[in-house]
């Protein structure tokens, strides 16, 4: 057998133990060792964005990240962004409303990128969203709807914050 290492990974708030070869990427560890197949492999070369996950809240390409690199850090995948009770994340809901995908394969990566794009403050205009979502390929060509969904979710997030701010002021 090939040599393996033991890892303990914090994924979506749960601790996972696994033994993998040192060369195994976060993407392969999620898909092949942990049955978290929501994260997709579109190119395995960091060029399509389908494997986008969050590490400590920032978007990373899990195909270019070794599983061993992210021990002790907080990993979030597409399986971890809806509420515990099953309520969709506002970005997921906006994707349905705007028909922001077709075959669904790039969608987990698009959503993870979109959540981060909004969090980074890069969803201020359609042009900015296009630029900051340009790392995520969609061959079905749903870009215009994706941009509309991100815009809608960003506006909701901004309004939400504003409402909270108002409440605090009051």
């Amino acid at each position: 057998m090939t040599r393996t290492i033991h890892l303990s990974l914090d994924i979506n708030g749960k601790q996972h133990e696994l033994d993998v070869e040192p060369r195994v990427t976060l993407l392969d560890a999620l898909r092949e060792s942990l049955a978290l197949t929501g994260t997709k492999k579109g190119c395995d070369q960091g060029q399509c964005g389908a494997c986008t996950c969050h590490v400590d809240g920032k978007r990373v390409l899990s195909c270019l990240t070794l599983a061993a690199q992210v021990e002790g850090r907080q990993i979030t995948t597409i399986e971890g962004i809806a509420a515990e009770g099953g309520d969709l994340h506002p970005v997921q809901a906006a994707f349905i409303e705007n028909d922001a995908f077709q075959c669904g394969y790039c969608t987990p990566g698009q959503i993870m990128s979109a959540v981060a794009c909004i969090r980074e403050g890069h969803a201020g205009s359609e042009e900015e969203i296009r630029e900051y979502m340009s790392g995520n390929l969609c061959r079905c060509g749903a870009y215009n709807s994706i941009v509309a969904a991100v815009r809608e979710a960003a506006e909701m997030a901004a309004t939400g914050v504003a409402a909270k701010d108002k409440a605090e002021v009051a």
């Binding site: 929501g38 995948t77 597409i78 809806a82 969709l88 995908f101």
Partner: peptide
């Protein structure tokens, strides 16, 4: 849509 959006 829902299964595609949730990684399922």
């Amino acid at each position: 849509d829902k299964r595609f959006l949730t990684g399922k």
